[in-house]
Amino acid sequence: MAIPNEALRKVLMEIEQKSIQSSQQIQLVKAQIAAKKRESRILQLTASEVGVLPSGTAVYEGVGKMFIQTPPSDVMLRLEKEGSDLKNDVTNLEKKLHYLETTYTNSRNSFEQILTRAGGSV
C-alpha cells in the first residue's frame, strides 16, 4: 500500500523537525555537562587548597559584597555538598543526553526507512 506523496512529505517534515530539535538539545545538554564538570573541577581544586590549611587559619567566604570569616571545616562541608549536587546534576544531564541521542538516532532511522520504502519518490 503506497502512501500519498503529500502525506509522506508531511511525515518526513515532522520527523526531520524532531531530529533537528533533538540535535539542538543534544548540543545544549553537552554544553551544560561541560559547565557542570568545570564547576566540579573548581570545587575540587578549592577543596584541595582549603584541606591543606592549618585548622586555625582564617578563611573568608564572599557573601554579596562582603566577606565573612568561616572555619575551614564549614567551608569543606559546603564544598562537599556542592560537589555531590554537581555530580547528581551531571548524572541527570547524562541520562537526558542519552535519551536525546536515542531520539535523534530513531528519528534519523525512521526518516531513512521512509525514504527507502518510498523509493526516493518524494
Score class of each variant (00 low, 15 high):
61 E>L: 13
61 E>M: 10
63 V>C: 04
63 V>D: 13
63 V>K: 07
63 V>Q: 15
63 V>P: 07
64 G>L: 05
64 G>R: 06
64 G>V: 07
64 G>A: 06
64 G>H: 10
65 K>D: 13
65 K>A: 13
65 K>G: 13
66 M>L: 12
67 F>I: 07
67 F>N: 11
67 F>C: 06
68 I>A: 07
68 I>Q: 07
69 Q>K: 15
69 Q>C: 12
69 Q>H: 14
69 Q>I: 02
70 T>G: 00
70 T>H: 02
71 P>Y: 06
72 P>K: 12
72 P>H: 08
72 P>M: 11
72 P>D: 11
72 P>G: 05
73 S>W: 01
73 S>C: 01
73 S>I: 06
74 D>G: 09
74 D>W: 02
74 D>T: 05
75 V>E: 00
75 V>Y: 01
75 V>I: 11
75 V>K: 05
75 V>H: 00
76 M>F: 14
76 M>A: 14
76 M>E: 12
76 M>W: 07
77 L>N: 12
77 L>I: 03
77 L>H: 07
77 L>S: 08
77 L>Y: 05
77 L>E: 08
78 R>Q: 10
78 R>W: 03
78 R>K: 10
79 L>S: 13
79 L>H: 10
79 L>Q: 10
80 E>V: 11
80 E>A: 09
80 E>H: 12
80 E>S: 11
80 E>K: 15
80 E>Y: 09
81 K>D: 10
81 K>G: 02
81 K>R: 12
82 E>I: 03
82 E>A: 15
82 E>R: 06
82 E>K: 09
83 G>L: 03
84 S>I: 04
84 S>F: 08
84 S>G: 04
85 D>G: 04
85 D>C: 04
85 D>F: 11
85 D>I: 04
85 D>P: 06
85 D>H: 15
86 L>Q: 06
86 L>K: 05
86 L>D: 14
88 N>H: 14
88 N>E: 10
88 N>F: 06
89 D>P: 03
90 V>I: 12
91 T>A: 03
91 T>L: 04
91 T>C: 02
92 N>Y: 00
92 N>C: 00
92 N>L: 00
93 L>C: 08
94 E>H: 01
94 E>T: 02
94 E>M: 03
94 E>P: 01
94 E>K: 03
95 K>A: 10
95 K>P: 04
96 K>E: 03
96 K>Y: 00
96 K>V: 00
97 L>W: 01
98 H>Q: 07
98 H>W: 11
98 H>E: 14
99 Y>M: 06
100 L>Y: 01
100 L>R: 01
101 E>T: 05
102 T>A: 05
102 T>G: 12
103 T>H: 04
104 Y>L: 10
104 Y>Q: 08
104 Y>S: 05
104 Y>K: 09
105 T>C: 12
105 T>V: 09
106 N>L: 04
106 N>P: 11
106 N>E: 14
107 S>V: 10
107 S>G: 13
107 S>K: 15
108 R>P: 02
109 N>G: 04
109 N>P: 01
110 S>M: 09
110 S>L: 15
110 S>T: 11
